[in-house]
Design a protein around this nucleic acid. Structure first.
Length: 268
DNA sequence: CGCTAGTCCTGTCTGC
DNA sequence: TGCAGACAGGACTAGC
């Protein structure tokens, strides 16, 4: 569910908590902590210095290199609430109480996500690929990482070691916009196709951020509200419906174990 | 090293 | 209505 645009949307909302201090931390489910390099009470009283994003990870930076790294997996949400609100929703595993009358709530039904209590976020991101919205992501970079690759382009786009932040929805949407079939092998893409794909990846992500992400089912932004980009998808989740460009029925096929949606007439 | 299939977990939908 | 089975936006790992 939550891919780069969704995490970026959460991050933007959460920025209003920069400068607030951590009061207490509730760990309601121990196994949601992927690493525990420090005890939660060590950061009581610390100020939130920054809230950043790397790929699909959200990073809450505290003082002296302490940080809380959040990944939402498939079904996770991370949102804020007034401290006075006392209803505990189901599947809430972690709560960060702040001194600004707000609490940050981590909730994850399937528990594929997790939280890192880390003192060095760089370690978590050591293997991670380029940020697709940064200047480092160029058509040349994309061409380089696809060279000699025998896996399908769909599978390669989902590989976080190559590009950080794409998931199933935006991989399908970017391939539609670049007019490339998801089952094509990475090495088979021509330079002009790679150029189109590079542009499409950036466009698809930027447009979704403007619409505060895609809410298919579980995703909510930092205020626990739905996004709007689900109303603008061209292929994802639209199997059997008309291609918005040519009218042909959108096909759905499993590629690399993931459902993949495309128009067999527009994409080659 | 690159690639694929299996696995983790719960909720929801489909078909009998 | 009830139930079994398939499937879901992610990402590790084991094994070839």
């Amino acid at each position: 569910m939550p891919e780069l645009p969704e995490i970026e949307t959460v991050r933007t909302a959460m920025e209003m908590n920069i400068g607030a201090r951590v009061q207490t931390i509730d760990v309601l489910r121990e196994d949601i902590l992927r690493v525990r390099e420090y005890e939660p009470d060590e950061v009581h009283g610390q100020v939130i210095c920054a809230i950043s994003r790397r790929g699909k990870f959200l990073v809450i930076s505290l003082e002296k290199d302490y940080c809380i790294v959040v990944h939402l997996g498939m079904s996770g949400r991370f949102y804020m609430q007034e401290e006075s609100r006392e209803v505990l929703e189901p599947h809430v595993h972690f709560i960060l109480h702040l001194d600004n009358e707000r609490k940050l709530i981590y909730r994850d039904t399937r528990r594929f996500g997790g939280i890192w209590l880390s003192r060095d976020a760089a370690v978590i991101f050591a293997q991670m690929g380029v940020e697709p919205l940064s200047a480092d992501f160029t058509a040349e970079y994309l061409q380089k990482v696809l060279l000699n690759r025998k896996a399908s382009i769909k599978t390669l786009l989902l590989n976080q070691k190559l590009i950080a932040g794409l998931g199933n929805i935006y991989a399908d949407e970017a391939l539609f916009e670049a007019r490339i079939q998801p089952g094509r092998l990475g090495a088979s893409l021509q330079p002009r196709e790679i150029k189109r794909l590079h542009q499409a990846i950036r466009d698809v992500l930027l447009r979704s951020i403007e619409r505060r992400g895609t809410t298919f089912r579980d995703y909510r932004d930092g205020f626990n509200s739905s996004g709007e980009n689900q109303h603008f998808l061209n292929v994802y989740g639209r199997e059997g419906l008309a291609c918005p460009h040519c009218g042909r029925e959108i096909e759905m096929e499993r590629i690399g174990g993931r459902s993949s949606h495309y128009c067999a007439r527009c994409q080659h």
